[in-house]
Simulated scan of single mutants.
Amino acid sequence: MIARGTWIALVAALSIALVPALGIAQEDARTLFQRGQTAYSQGDYDAAIEQWTRAYELDPRPLLQFNLSQAYERLGRLEDAIHALELYLERADPNDEHQSDARARVSALRERVGRTSVRVTGGPEGATILVDGEDRGRTPRPDPIQVSPGSHRIAVRAQGYAEFTSSVVVPAGQSVDVAVDMQPSSGGAQVAQGGDELPVVPIILFSAGGAALIAGAVMGGVALSDAENAPGRDSPEADAARGLALGADITMGAGVALAAAGLIVLLVADSGGGEDREPERISLAPWGGASGGGVAVAGSF
């Protein structure tokens, strides 16, 4: 069992051994702080930040954050400057003489960050504005779009137009205008035109086919009624009824053919095609005879 005197001697020896180590740590923090001061005075703010950050890791004195905020502000890193000042205000003595200055600077920096923006002008109405890939509204947008200081990629997209892209550097507290100049894209224009024109053809064909079927049905009903009321099979009334029935058959056949043509055109339009595809050509030829009639459909797709 170790005597009490021996314990006291060991504790004293350990304390003596730790004092130089603590002194070295404090000395290193002071050295790093002084190096940071020298770098700051020479305009090397990146080096000052590095030295003061290392000093803060060894000796977390709140005033170091106050100094760091100044270096960050000089580099235009306003959000980092605000964060450093907030750390200082959180951890510093409330009676510290720099408190009021820090609060005022935080407010000023936040106002500057709010003014950092891009203003997009021009471009087709309704185009999508993307800032660094994020949707930020539609054109026209006269109000500024708030961004952080630094480099940003602006893109504007609209159907039927080639995409507009631009890389801009926005200084802290400033607004940068981005003038959009978009040219119609040949592919997009053809798609848009095709989307407007292609559905019209099958609609017309379907409508005409339906009208023909209805007319044929009406004619057939009248022919049947006249045939029933005819005095004999060889009478003029019976001949007229047979002629009307033939016309009804031809008309209904044409209606069926028109509807089929509309379906073909619709299917071809849905299948798409390259930019070099020739336009569809459709020809309709009515035919008729003693046994019936219809419409012959010929075309190239």
Rank of each mutant, 00 (worst) to 15 (best):
R153I: 01
A17P: 02
V118A: 01
Q193D: 12
A127P: 03
E163N: 00
R141E: 07
L213N: 02
S186V: 02
L205G: 05
G188V: 01
G255M: 11
R4F: 11
Q183Y: 11
G160N: 04
L109C: 04
T53F: 15
G137A: 03
Y40L: 06
Y72E: 00
L18N: 10
E237M: 06
V201Y: 15
P199E: 11
S15W: 14
V268E: 14
H98W: 12
V176T: 05
R112I: 05
D28A: 14
R35F: 15
M1P: 06
A260T: 03
V222C: 04
V200P: 05
G288H: 14
A179N: 04
S151C: 04
S175G: 07
V201T: 11
A17F: 15
R242L: 08
Q174T: 04
P171R: 11
G209T: 01
R54W: 13
L198K: 14
V191A: 13
G221L: 08
A269T: 02
E228T: 07
A127M: 03
I264T: 10
A48L: 07
A84W: 12
G293H: 01
I129S: 01
E27C: 09
S148V: 02
V222D: 12
P144A: 04
S186N: 05
L68Y: 15
P149T: 06
E278N: 04
A162E: 13
G160S: 04
A3K: 08
G232K: 05
D196K: 14
A29P: 05
Q42D: 09
G272Y: 15
M219C: 07
G188N: 00
S100K: 00
S207W: 14
I264W: 15
G150R: 08
G195W: 12
Y56F: 13
D101C: 02
G36I: 00
A259C: 10
L22S: 05
P236L: 10
L78W: 13
P231N: 02
Q99M: 14
S283N: 13
D46W: 14
V168E: 13
G221V: 04
S166P: 00
P144E: 06
V265E: 14
V222S: 09
G187F: 11
D46M: 10
L244N: 01
W287V: 03
W52T: 06
D270V: 02
L267K: 14
A240M: 06
A285S: 09
D135A: 12
A48K: 01
D226G: 08
A217S: 08
L244D: 03
G133E: 08
S41T: 01
E111K: 09
A155P: 00
A259G: 09
G210L: 09
